[in-house]
Design a protein around this nucleic acid. Structure first.
Lengths: 245, 245
DNA sequence: ACCTGAACACCGTTCAAGT
DNA sequence: ACCTGAACACCGTTCAAGT
């Protein structure tokens, strides 16, 4: 099921990899299952070993530490995000799609993403993503220091926005529910004189709080509008294609 | 030292608060110290109790759980961020300053921020921040559902970008160093045919990686340019005041 | 030569036993 | 009535003892 770019990497982490049922890929796969099912709190190496039908310390023969395993999970998420991606003819669309792909995978595995989102691995999938983004930034007409800066701004935006959302989704479901209903209550309980702007929007605010997609798309659209405004070279789409509603 | 908005909140968490040396404020203060010094890994309730000169379980008499304490820490960071803030005459500057203030406090307490950044408390400091942001969004000419959406986009951007940075800064210093040097090495080792865009920027990329402020300011400027482009009502500053360089 | 699992130094949290 | 700290069920990780 998983792609296999894991070839000549024994030097990185598989030193102690030996014959047997376990493989790094399988361990990462099972980690995602454990994290999806039980959240960050339910994710431990002993438990992982038991779920895999092995010794509670078995994982240590494949990963040097829990952190090392988390890096492998991070790489797995990026791999999944960029699988089958090809840059669009329009650099704006290329950036849009890469950002949305990361977010989609992070939302599918929120607990895993909350551990992995700010970790980097420099492995093939990640380097490909960097190359694609730099290609888009280049087409936009940015060069040199400016290109590096804009690329990093895009990368941070994509990873941190998706990571923040994932961290929230990775909380216990009841904790999340408590948070959402607390906001609704807080908006409704506000004093009209002390907080007139909240008061005016006391109905709209909880509604928007339920629509993660709308909020994210709005943030992404605003950010991309800024990039297009700053770009020396507009994309080749017909005028108005990427216009803000 | 700490501001005291903690008045009538016994119902929220101080139920078991009794006489003695400890107070919630003191515990939060000491938590920040512990987190600043030892990172997330070194932050435990038993250790906190000992540092405070009390029983390893003493904190449980002031906070229901570690999570409850983290929420108090989250509120403390926001309080610190908005302390002394007053909205600017220009709504663009108001948003700029609130975003920068959060980031500054998060960078001062990265480990604390990495635990707190995606948690919300609905307490006074947070509600004031919401009110100010909504005020700015209102001045920008957004109304109703649109205002709520743009406000949430700004809040997510501010908290998640600063939180992501903080999470990175909250890693062990040597882990951070390893990460930075790994990127430099990865950029330099890239194949010119496979990754031409990375190759072209192999010197600029590591340089930009060292300048967090420049990357953040760039991302914030791009985002704010998008908001200004979408805003029905421009701010009253002279034309070009907030122009992208 | 390789793997196992006992063991260490911790956690977060609870609650019987004390004062 | 309130607090303490022993105790529970875990962690991440190591390494002596086995095969």
């Amino acid at each position: 099921m998983s792609t296999n770019v894991e070839s000549k990497e024994g030097d990185r982490r598989g030193e102690r990899l030996k014959r047997g049922i376990l493989t790094p890929e399988l361990i990462v796969e099972e980690s995602l299952g454990l994290l999806d099912g039980g959240g960050v709190a339910g994710f431990s190496l002993p438990k992982l070993g038991r779920v895999l039908g092995a010794d509670p310390t078995a994982v240590y023969r494949y990963f040097r530490s829990k952190d090392d395993l988390i890096l492998a999970i991070a790489d797995r998420l990026i791999e999944q995000a960029v699988a089958g991606f090809t840059p669009s003819a329009c650099w704006v669309d290329t950036i849009f799609e890469l950002a949305r792909r990361i977010r989609t995978v992070y939302r599918e595995h929120p607990a895993a993403a909350s551990l992995a989102s700010y970790r980097t691995t420099q492995r093939p999938a990640e380097m490909r993503a960097v190359e694609w983004l730099l290609g888009a930034v280049n087409e936009a007409g940015f060069a040199g220091e400016q290109a590096a800066l804009v690329y990093r701004a895009i990368a941070d935006f994509s990873l941190y926005m998706a990571g923040g959302e994932a961290a929230l989704l990775g909380l216990d479901p009841d904790q999340q529910e408590a948070d959402a209903s607390a906001w609704t209550r807080a908006y409704r309980a506000v004093d009209a004189d002390e907080h007139p702007n909240i008061w005016a929007l006391r109905d709209a605010l909880p509604r928007v709080g339920d629509d993660d997609d709308a909020v994210y798309e709005r943030a992404l659209a605003l950010f991309m509008a800024g990039i297009q405004a700053a770009a020396p070279a507009p994309c080749r789409c017909p005028p108005g294609t990427h216009a803000l509603k």
